[in-house]
Each structure stands twice: as structure tokens, then as C-alpha cells.
Design a protein around this nucleic acid. Structure first.
Length: 883
RNA sequence: GGGGACUUAGCUCAGUUGGUAGAGCACCUGCUUUGCAAGCAGGGGGUCAGGGGUUCGACCCCCCUAGUCUCCA
């Protein structure tokens, strides 16, 4: 049975049991502390914890997941995959243990003709938590499983909790027996390779207290509303049902493995090492495909780095099998074809996906090329010093700084007859890891504790009224001072206030927080910042201007009207500019982030080269035309699916609720998902003028713009600048550029000529200096004082000129003033050098007198100091030394 | 978020006790050659990423900023 078919049956089965079918959430987790969605229940956590009321009593999903913790194990075992799909059914205070067990059993064992999987019940085993007699009873009653195939396991295996206070409960896991050829008898307890876990049922029935880790805590009592959370590994069931050995050989993965084998000219199954490499490629390529599909691009931190590693590890594995040509394009195409049944959006978006993946491969091939040069040099160095071991530092440097993978280093060094100090490498690696971890720990401790906000959030969400009105009545739900919940904030103090209703916009979606005030009986607060520390809860940072505010008081939030108008202008202008970018550059110029506040906006977008002046003008023209056309701006709430069909642009890396707000400017002219505040007609934006444009990393650029009056001011500023320049240059504005160019060129020519003339003038004085040369200690000594010069190289040419005239038995002393500092240069002929006269030593003597230092070579040296009045004393010191 | 490396002529890169910025390719001029490929001679081209500091003096040492590459979390 195909994987997509198992998936389809799953959703249909639970839909028939009144479950709401929820589409898979993005791999990009909503929780900023999690890089990815790592389990099927992640999108349902708020409903499980009771923070948010569940919109449906029961739900089912097939969730895309990424886990990279065991990335090194991929390919070596049957079960480690970085991407997998988790089938789940969930109950939020609705059904419990009996139904969960009953549904699971029915789905697994009922005939395929009736929509089940028709697994042989004789091969199914279950484990339960050791004290959960209820579960055992139910398994006996519903499934009639003999006690011999039910095992009791402890806290570690069969008790679920998050590791923190909150819901917890026992689990029951279902295993499939692959048969004696895969391991020993004795059930899952004895051998988890022969007995494969396929489904975990979690019965959330307790409230757990504080305590450390997963098995040392206190149970506080029963939950008022009990939940069911289950997870069935789709890949595991698929490989069992498809009669293959592991998840790399299922229909959604195998084609990639086969193509990789073909490209490398290898036979799968022939050599263990190559098999591992082939599986790595098959797994990583699929994960990369799904990640890029969800909007991740390769980068050097966070999610982007994980994606980069997946792609680079694939390329490295291919290299180790002897393939040096680009392969990613072919592999990812095959992977897409294998996955598109379940994820049709991959096909629609494939051009973007393959472009991104192939670009990363090209970048890595460049890295490998430059790394090879460094490695070759390191190997040559070891060999020339008759060594046989490449040091751990070299291997680490290659890996850390040049991105050259360690196993390629190992292989190339081996080919060159060298071994590599692996222990040295590993310990440097550990050091770097510890450094990063220590830092992360410090950040976590220093970071804010969100529990105080979570407590308020449990009471409900903050109602935002700011789309409709600027002033709203509310009630003070809580006050926070120094991270602690307090009852009162007094005059002059700064703290946070949480209300049931607010008209003040919290910073989000790139829009800055509103400015305004909060007033009530006997107090007035100035709003400094507005944030959403946890989803759904707005916290206002305020300064108490007068009086004191206490919990439960009534309060009126008031947005500063001018500020809000500016914010609306800037935010709508951001949409206009985004639309203009995509119109001028093409639809791939997608916004990747933005920031806007009254008068100013900044937009990051996907593009890989600088914008020309012409392009920028075109952008301004398209934007300002749209503003001038007075387009209507509207906002509509709709489901994500509707919005998508509607063609609204969603931003990658953002997560949205199921109900989304779509902002349109001029109907289809611009359609974006957005929670911000906007003007009602485009003409209210007034004017948009572009500012700086720059790179913010590979494939990403940032453009700034001014909006409304600020745009006008930025333009007048430029106009007055041009006016002043034309005034200075005495030409009309149109001729300014040419005039400047001309002037610069003339200036350069004149400077050159001047230098030449000065030098000639000085050179003309050489005969006089030569004539006045004295003979001291057997060599001719000439002294030349150049006066004020503007570069040290003049001294050099004169010194060299004098020496040429005086012959080899000579010492030439040149002095000058560089600005106000005395400088002295000594040039010595070769015959004098032979007699032991050293320019460096003479200069040191002189410059010591001048209060400085100096040095150089035997034939020419220069130095200087700070006291120009001692210049003649310094020269005398040299003459004395020569005598 | 924390590290490492890099940034020098149009391009690819050299440049150590801090003391005269170079090579190859490309470009320009002349010569040579039936032509092509090239050869010979000469020449132009540099705020040494930007800013600050130390120093008599900084491509070089120190600090800051930016860009590029890279590893780790």
C-alpha cells in the first residue's frame, strides 16, 4: 500500500469518527524556541494545556515533522529519519482511554476493503504504564490481546510529560512483530528492532507539579478535562506494509535512493558503507525538499543552517561515492515526484525550490574547491617536514573556517599517504560546541521568564479594538514590575500593564508599536512600548505620569492620532512597495521581513543583486502611481485556504492563525496576509521616496523608503543639496555630473604635475648639495634639507638621487618637515656599507635626538620625531658617529 | 546567539621582526607575424573594504563598522 494511501485512509477513518481534519501545520514552528515542528501534537499544544479553548472537541492530522537531533544516525538504522510524517488523533476533553484504544485497534486490524490497514492482530503487541490497570483491562476487552503480548513498562518509557508543570499522563504503545529473523523473542521490552513501535497513545489525565526531568516529579491530581494525543509514524507503518526493510525504501523515498545509486554507479545492498551513504542522500534530500517547500532558505544560522547541513551532507555523501558533478537538481526533482501526491503544493512551487537547492549546491562546490587548495597546501607542508600525520588543528581549521567536511579530509589525506589526528579534531570540535552551549545557557538565564505572562494568558486573550477605534474602555487585569506580578504601580515607576481590551497596536508583522496614553480614575500612563510576549496577550510598557494604577481599575487606552496615521501610511506603503517590487523585478522578489514606523519603512526581499538607479526610479514611479490612483484599501477575514485561493501573498517564516486577515489595495493589485493597521485609500499615503538599498546576506536585500511628509522632507533635502552644489560648481544641475567628473580629473592631473614639478625642483638642487658634501671618516657625506614636503617618498627619491651622484663611498642625509614633524632619511652607498656604515643605525641615532624612533635597511632607512627644533642637532649626531 | 577566516590593480591572487605595494591575465601604444595562436618592447591602472587608535612611520599591530565565506548552538 502506498504511503499516500495510508495517509488518505487515516484521515478518512478519523473523519468518519467525527474528527475535524486539520491540515498539516508548517514545518516552521510557531514557538520561537523550537526550530521546527517536531511532533504531530505541536500545533495542538495550546488546546492541550487548556490555555486556549479548542475550536473542536476532536481532531486528526497528518503532520510534517523534522528532527535533526540524531542526524549522525541517519542511514545506519532502520528508524532514524530527519523528515517524517506523524498521523495523530486528538481529543480535547472529549473521548478518553476507551475510545482511543478502540479506534486504534479498529484502524489497524479492520479489513482493507472497509478502510482499515488489515494488519495481522497476532503480530501486534502493546505496552502500558506499569500502574495503568485500566488500560490493560481495555486492551483485553476491546482487542482481546492475550496477557502474553501486553507488557508493563515504567515511568521512563510509558509516562508522558513535557518536563515542566502541566498536563501529564500514562501512555500505551502499539508494536508490530517483524518476526524471528529480526531479533530475539520477548516483546518490545526485549528487542525494539524486531518489535517496531508504530503508534503511541498518550492519556493526559494528570496535572504534574514541579520536579526535574521526565521521571522525578509529583502528581498534583486529575485534570478537569482529560485529553487524548496519539502519534502513529506514517513511514514506519509504510515500510512494514510495503514489505521493505526500513523507511528509506518506502515509495516516497526509494526513488531518490535508486537515482543516487545510478548516478554513483553503485548497487544498493552491495557494500554497507555505500548503503549508508545512499540512505543519507535519500533522507536528506526529501527533508531539504520539504523545508524549502515551507519557505526555509539555506543560511548560516537557525533553520537555514539545518537545511544547509542537509544539502551539504547529501553532496558530501555523493562525493564519497565518487560523484563530483552537480546532482541536487536531479535528486530533488525525483523526490518531489515521489512526494507530490500528498503535497501537491510542491509541484506548484517547484521552480523556487529547485533554484534555491541548486544555488546552495553551487555555493558548496565553490567552498569545496577553495578548501581543497588549503588542504593540498597543508598536506604538502606535512610532507615537506617529513611528517605522516595531518594535525587536528589543520583538520579543524578546514572544517570550521573553510567548511571542508572532515570525512573528505580523511579520505584525501589517506590518498596522500597521511593519517589524520582525529582525537585532536574531535576535542577542538567539542570545545567549540561547549562554547556555543555555554553561551546559549547564559542567554536563557538572562532572558525573560514568560511564566508571568502565561498566567495572564490563561485568563483569556486581549481584545484588540484598534482597527475600529482609537480609544477604548478596558479593565486592568494585571501589572508587572521587574518581571513579577504586582498589585500597584506608583507614580514615576516604569512597569507593564495588561488589559482585557486595548486600542493600542502591539509590535508585530513589522509594524512598530503604537504611541499613546492609558488613563483612568486618578492615574495617567504614558505608553512606551506595546508587545505580545505570548500569543494572544498584549502587554503595555508604561511610565506612570501621575497617580497610581492598581489591578481591577478601569482604564481608557488612547492611541496618539498623528502617530497612528503615520503608522498606517508606512504600513500601507510597505505593501505598495512590495507589490511594486514584484511587479518590476518579478514575483520571486518576495518580502522576507519588514519594519515600519511613522515616516519610515524598511523591507527585506529575496533578490541577489544590487538594484540599478533606473530600477529604483521605476519602483518609485510604480509605487507613487498606485498611491496617486487613490486605490481602495480593504481588509477581510477568511480561512487560510480561501486566502490562498484568493492569491494573497503569505510571508515565509511567518505563522498564521486559521482565520487570516487579508489586506487588499486596489483589489488584486496587492493582496497580502497582514494583521497591521492601514489607511483606507492609497492616496492617504501621500508620497513614497526610496532611501538606501543594500545586501543583508546572500540572496537577500534590504530597501528603505520614506513615507508621507518624511518622503517630502527627504526629497527637499536632496533638492537643496543639489542647489548648493550647482551654486558651488557654477553650472546648471544637468551639467553637474559632467562638471564634477571633469574637475576630479583635472585635479588629479594637476596634483600629479605638481608632484612632478616639486620633485624636479628638489632634484635640481642635488648638484648644490653634492658640491657642499664633506668628507667625513673616509666617505663623502651630503646633507640636504628639503624644508616642508607632503610625503615621505620625496625623501626617498632625493636620498637615492644624492647617492647616485656621490658614488658608492657615500652617506646621504636628507631631512624635511612632514607637516610639523621632523623626518630624516639616510642613504648609504655599497662601499660605505662594506666598511660597516649602516643606514638603520644612523637613523636611530638621529631620531632619538628628535624624540622618536626609526629604522630600515642597511642601504636606506628613515625615521623621525616630534621636536623639529633639534633637527640640526640630529644631523650633527650622525656626522659625529661617522667621524 | 557564539566563534573562525577573508576584503590589495578590471579579474585571480602574492606581499613578516611595521620602513620604496607586486605577479599572472586583461587593457593601451609600438614592433614582429600571410592569417590564427602568440611573441618582443614600453605604458596606463591602487583612498591596500570604511572609520578610529598605537607609532617618527601602518597593507602589516589594536579597536569599531560593513560585506563575503564558514563552523557550532
Amino acid at each position: 500500500m502506498k504511503t499516500a494511501e495510508i495517509r488518505r485512509r487515516w484521515l478518512e477513518f478519523f473523519a468518519s469518527k467525527q474528527h475535524t481534519v486539520v491540515p498539516s501545520a508548517s514545518l516552521i514552528s510557531e514557538d520561537p524556541s523550537l526550530l521546527f515542528t517536531v511532533a504531530g501534537m505541536v500545533p495542538f499544544i495550546p488546546y492541550m494545556s487548556g490555555l486556549v479553548p479548542a475550536p473542536y472537541p476532536r481532531a486528526t492530522s497528518v503532520q510534517k515533522c523534522i528532527r535533526t537531533l540524531d542526524i549522525e544516525e541517519v542511514g545506519k538504522t532502520t528508524r532514524h529519519g530527519t523528515f517524517f510524517q506523524m498521523n495523530g488523533n486528538f481529543s480535547f476533553g472529549d473521548y478518553f482511554k476507551r475510545e482511543a484504544i478502540s479506534y486504534a485497534w479498529e484502524f489497524l486490524t479492520s479489513p482493507q476493503a472497509k478502510g482499515g490497514l488489515e494488519l495481522n492482530p497476532e503480530l501486534l503487541w502493546v505496552t502500558v504504564y506499569k500502574d495503568d490497570d485500566e488500560a490493560i483491562e481495555l486492551w483485553r476487552e476491546i482487542a482481546d490481546i492475550p496477557m502474553a503480548r501486553i507488557q508493563r513498562l515504567g515511568m521512563k518509557d510509558n509516562f508522558w510529560s513535557t518536563g515542566q508543570p502541566g498536563p501529564a499522563g500514562p501512555c500505551s504503545e502499539i508494536y508490530y512483530d517483524r518476526g524471528p529473523e529480526y531479533g530475539i523473542e520477548g516483546g518490545p521490552e526485549a528487542d525494539d528492532n524486531r518489535y517496531i513501535e508504530i503508534w503511541n497513545l498518550v492519556f493526559m489525565q494528570y496535572e504534574r507539579g514541579k520536579g526535574l526531568g521526565k521521571d522525578d516529579f509529583e502528581i498534583l491530581g486529575e485534570l478537569p478535562k482529560k485529553n487524548i494525543d496519539t502519534g502513529m509514524g506514517l513511514e514506519r507503518v509504510a515500510f512494514l506494509m510495503q514489505g521493505v526493510e526500513n523507511l528509506y525504501e518506502i515509495d516516497e523515498v526509494r526513488p531518490v535512493l535508486d537515482l543516487a545509486a545510478q548516478l554513483a554507479n553503485k548497487t544498493y545492498g552491495a557494500l554497507v558503507e555505500d548503503d549508508v551513504r545512499l540512505r543519507v542522500v535519500a533522507d536528506h534530500i526529501r527533508s531539504a525538499l520539504m523545508l524549502i517547500g515551507d519557505g526555509v532558505s539555506p543560511g548560516n544560522d537557525g533553520r537555514g543552517y539545518v537545511l544547509r547541513r542537509l544539502l551539504r551532507r547529501s553532496i558530501r555523501a555523493m562525493r564519497l561515492m565518487g560523484v563530483n558533478e552537480p546532482v541536487i537538481g536531479k535528486l530533488i526533482t525525483v523526490s518531489k515526484d515521489a512526494m507530490k501526491d500528498s503535497y501537491p503544493e510542491l509541484e506548484a512551487d517547484f521552480k523556487r525550490i529547485i533554484t534555491s537547492a541548486v544555488a546552495e549546491e553551487e555555493a558548496f562546490l565553490r567552498t569545496l574547491t577553495s578548501g581543497s587548495l588549503v588542504l593540498d597546501q597543508a598536506i604538502a607542508d606535512v610532507k615537506s617536514s617529513k611528517g605522516s600525520i595531518l594535525g587536528g588543528e589543520s583538520a579543524f581549521l578546514l572544517h570550521d573556517t573553510y567548511g571542508f567536511p572532515i570525512d573528505l579530509t580523511l579520505e584525501i589525506a589517506e590518498e596522500a599517504g597521511l593519517s589524520v589526528d582525529r582525537d585532536g579534531f574531535t576535542s577542538l570540535m567539542t570545545e567549540q560546541r561547549d562554547r556555543a552551549k555555554a553561551d546559549a545557557r547564559e542567554k536563557k538565564l538572562g532572558g525573560t521568564d514568560l511564566s508571568v505572562y502565561s498566567a495572564f494568558r490563561a485568563l483569556g486573550t486581549t481584545k484588540f479594538t484598534g482597527y475600529e477605534e482609537l480609544e477604548s474602555d478596558g479593565k486592568v487585569l494585571g501589572l508587572v514590575h521587574d518581571g513579577q506580578s504586582v498589585k500597584v504601580l506608583s507614580h514615576g515607576s516604569v512597569g507593564e500593564i495588561i488589559l482585557d481590551t486595548t486600542s493600542l497596536y502591539a509590535e508585530s508583522g513589522g509594524q512598530a508599536a503604537d504611541a499613546g496614553t492609558i488613563r483612568g480614575e486618578g492615574f495617567e500612563l504614558e505608553v512606551l512600548d506595546v508587545q505580545k510576549p505570548v500569543k494572544g496577550l498584549v502587554s503595555h510598557k508604561v511610565l506612570v505620569r501621575s497617580g497610581e494604577v492598581s489591578v481591577n481599575s478601569k482604564a481608557v487606552t488612547a492611541v496618539d492620532e498623528d502617530w497612528r496615521l503615520g503608522a498606517c501610511q508606512a504600513h500601507s506603503a510597505t505593501h505598495v512597495l512590495h507589490a511594486a517590487l514584484r511587479q518590476v523585478l518579478g514575483p520571486s522578489a518576495l518580502q522576507s521581513g519588514s519594519y515600519n514606523k511613522p515616516g519610515y519603512l524598511r523591507l527585506d526581499f529575496a533578490w541577489n543583486q544590487a538594484l540599478s538607479i533606473e530600477t529604483k526610479s521605476e519602483l518609485e514611479e510604480v509605487s507613487n502611481l498606485a498611491i496617486r490612483r487613490d486605490l481602495a484599501v480593504s481588509s477581510n477575514l477568511m480561512s487560510q485556504a480561501e486566502a490562498k485561493e484568493f492569491g494573497a501573498v503569505a510571508l515565509f517564516g511567518e505563522t498564521y492563525d486559521e482565520l487570516v486577515r487579508v489586506i487588499q489595495i486596489g483589489g488584486p493589485w496587492s493582496r497580502e496576509l497582514c494583521g497591521g493597521t492601514h489607511v483606507s485609500r492609497s492616496s492617504q499615503i501621500g508620497l513614497l521616496s526610496l532611501g538606501a538599498e543594500a545586501s543583508v546576506g546572500s540572496g537577500a536585500r534590504r530597501i528603505e523608503a520614506f513615507v508621507g511628509m518624511e518622503a517630502f522632507r527627504s526629497l527637499t533635502l536632496e533638492r537643496s543639496l543639489v542647489a548648493r552644489l550647482t551654486d558651488l560648481a557654477k553650472v546648471p544641475a544637468a551639467a553637474l555630473e559632467e562638471k564634477l567628473q571633469q574637475t576630479f580629473e583635472e585635479l588629479r592631473n594637476v596634483q600629479k604635475r605638481l608632484a612632478l614639478i616639486e620633485q624636479q625642483a628638489l632634484q635640481g638642487r642635488i648638484p648644490a648639495w653634492v658640491a657642499s658634501a664633506k668628507v667625513i671618516g673616509g666617505q663623502k657625506v651630503a646633507v640636504a634639507d628639503l624644508g616642508i614636503v607632503d610625503g615621505a617618498d620625496v625623501l626617498r627619491t632625493i636620498g637615492a638621487g644624492l647617492r647616485a651622484e656621490l658614488g658608492e663611498a657615500s652617506v646621504s642625509i636628507v631631512s624635511a618637515l612632514l607637516a610639523d614633524k621632523p623626518a630624516v632619511l639616510v642613504a648609504v652607498g655599497s662601499a660605505a656599507i662594506a666598511r660597516g656604515v649602516k643606514a638603520g643605525a644612523l637613523v636611530k641615532l638621529a631620531s632619538a635626538v628628535l624624540g622618536g624612533g626609526g629604522g630600515g635597511k642597511d642601504d636606506m632607512a628613515q625615521g623621525g620625531g616630534t621636536d623639529s627644533s633639534k633637527l640640526s642637532l640630529a644631523i650633527e649626531a650622525i656626522e659625529k658617529a661617522l667621524a
